[in-house]
């Protein structure tokens, strides 16, 4: 074959991570995010489909206090994304202690979000909302609410633990700045999912 003579050693491929220039850990996290995004997509599409299929779907959330409360949750979560950006930036500049502080701030934001969310759930349960029934009509309202927000809250809780491990490892010099960045990818992804959950579950259910 002529191809072999011309191509012999002139192949641009030199092994390693180029030309994609992405480390395995970061690539692995992106791939996880793709598959997890599909899982959330299925949950949200199923919810949307069932909502269309049930014309009497309730819109029970009053602007004050339910929407304002969930907006507060959103602000807390988004703020924790900002602190995560600061953590990654500090880690990349080699400021180990600063990075750890920003990660701890991010964990605090995540924990606060989970706490607020649990408070809100307790409130709804007191009102009589269950996965299989609620005071306002189609039982699927409770199922979708608890199922989807529960799935997201689990991701936030796992993220807080994950960040805890990263902050310990990075603080002791065992983890690299790339590890911080990879954990940041996960954290931003979880925030991004909330930016779909918030309008679809909360804002579209605001009381007239």
């Amino acid at each position: 074959m002529n191809e072999t003579k011309t191509e012999a050693l002139s192949s641009p491929w030199s092994g390693g991570v180029s030309p994609f220039a992405m480390g395995s850990k970061k690539l692995g996290m992106w791939l996880f995010i793709i598959s997890d995004a599909l899982t959330f997509t299925v949950l949200l599409v199923s919810y949307s489909y069932l909502r269309f299929a049930n014309p009497d779907w309730p819109r029970p959330f009053p602007f004050f206090n339910a929407i304002t409360f969930s907006t507060l949750m959103t602000v807390v979560l988004l703020a924790s994304s900002l602190t995560m950006v600061m953590a990654v930036a500090a880690a990349n500049r080699g400021l180990r202690d600063t990075a750890v502080k920003w990660i701890l701030a991010t964990m605090l934001g995540g924990a606060l979000f989970v706490g607020l969310h649990l408070t809100e759930r307790m409130h709804l349960i007191e009102e009589g909302v269950r996965p299989f029934s609620n005071p306002w009509g189609p039982p699927l309202f409770g199922a979708a609410f608890f199922g989807i927000t529960g799935m997201h809250m689990t991701h936030v809780a796992i993220g807080v633990i994950y960040l805890g491990i990263v902050s310990l490892g990075f603080g002791r010099g065992k983890f690299s700045p790339e590890d911080v960045e990879v954990s940041g990818l996960y954290w931003h992804f979880v925030d991004l999912v909330w930016m779909f959950v918030f309008p679809l579950i909360y804002l579209m259910s605001v009381k007239h």
Partner: peptide, 22 residues
């Protein structure tokens, strides 16, 4: 593909154990 099946299984499991009706 498996991320989609995972979500479907979670919903089916909720139907079976939490009495939801997806």
């Amino acid at each position: 593909a498996f991320g989609v099946l995972l979500a479907a299984c979670i919903l089916l499991l909720l139907d079976r154990t939490a009495m939801t009706s997806f």
